[in-house]
Design a protein around this nucleic acid. Structure first.
Lengths: 222, 222
DNA sequence: TATAAATTTAGTCGACCGACTAGATTTGGT
DNA sequence: ACCAAATCTAGTCGGTCGACTAAATTTATA
């Protein structure tokens, strides 16, 4: 009939192997033969199931993008009154927590993050689509929040604060290998991630004179 | 006798072309023929002058690393008394300013930054050397500073603050294309970079209760 | 179990890769 | 101007790449 069970299994094996290899060496450095070997599938299956190497890559990228599409930032912020200082503080904390959850969910293959940032970095057909999905939407919501906090803020400044808030998270995802090597660990501990969230959030709240009390472990610098 | 003038010119042309292409497509995606064509040199010259593609890549990486080796962070901090709060604040500001200068110096080819971050990201023989040059040294100095500010701070927390302080700068260098595209500009304006420095520094100073007065444009969030 | 469709397999194809070389050309000190 | 050393050039080589195919095999149904 339409599709046999073995088909979806083969497709997934090829996608996983591709993501794994791409995370390790970069999309530009891997061959269809290496992919097929790691997936324990025949190289011809790439052509049969995806139509070629490029299409396989698109499928990999799409499988990552789907997860972000299914978890829009707006959903995480429903019910927050961003017109009050307390609500604004809570929104900032929720944004950071939500991104940490998405980036470092242990259920998700570790190659997802590397795929994201490679697509962002190098020209490819899906780049704009992907940026729109993963970045633009988040960017827009957060910039609007900053402009609510300070109505006099211009676009460029809002962008700047967007970047300042999220780049620590992004860097922890993009350069996970280096950081973990430096920390002498194999994965971020929940405590470390919690501290990352707290510190990011606190720095931003302090900058905007927003209340830091909420549900945070007290911060004391001496 | 040893070396003719044309030789250094050819070598430099090949290094520049390689850096330019690598920045655009990634080291793994460029061929010796493409390099030679962009450099307007013969492909055989790569073998003659460098001994092969890999050695050429090493020369490119080394040409970038040299610049960081020649500008150690320690030099920027001489004469600062990091035992006083004012000195600590000044040190943090100097660190950030110095990195911004190195990363966004208009005299330096724009491919330098992309080379740095590709070497950091993907396994290669010079990776550890490079990390030691560009990251470790900076890391050590800054972590020591944080531990001076708060003697009770543990290593992991110091690392965290190191990352929080510098990742915005690093991200602005690593993802320069995306950010500039979003800002609708072709290069960061001095004003934007200054604001980036000020905000990064202020956030950190506020977090550690250090004086923000120094030589900074006053910060007021409403 | 018989069967047609779906899938897997092994192998071929031309294109391009990096490495290398022998010979032509240029350089710079004399 | 001469010439030996340095450099440049065009081209060959074996190897790997992605695309593709025809035949073998497996699957799900009747």
């Amino acid at each position: 009939m339409g599709i046999y069970q073995t088909s979806t299994k083969t497709r997934q094996a090829l996608i996983d192997a591709t993501g794994q290899l791409a995370a390790e060496k970069g999309f530009n450095a891997i061959s269809t033969r290496a992919i097929a070997q790691l997936a324990d599938e025949n190289i011809g299956s790439i052509h049969y199931h995806f139509g070629g190497k490029d299409k396989l890559f698109e499928a990999v990228i799409l499988s990552v993008a789907t997860r972000w599409l299914e978890n829009p930032l707006e959903d995480a912020l429903t019910g927050i009154d961003i017109l009050t200082a307390a609500g604004q503080a809570q929104a900032i904390r929720l944004i950071v927590s939500r991104d940490i959850s998405l980036l470092f969910d242990k259920e998700v293959p570790s190659w997802h993050n590397r795929v994201i940032f490679q697509v962002m970095q190098y020209p490819n057909p899906l780049q704009n689509t992907f940026r729109a999905i993963v970045l633009e939407r988040e960017n827009e919501v957060i910039c609007r929040l900053f402009k609510t906090i300070d109505p006099a803020m211009d676009d460029e400044t809002a962008e700047l604060h967007f970047l300042l808030l999220l780049t620590p998270l992004i860097f922890h995802a993009d350069y996970q290998n280096i950081i973990l090597q430096k920390l002498g660990q194999t994965e971020y501990s929940p405590q470390y991630l919690q501290r990352l969230v707290d510190t990011c959030v606190t720095q931003t709240l302090l900058f905007f004179n927003l209340p830091t009390s909420a549900n945070e472990t007290s911060h004391d610098s001496e």
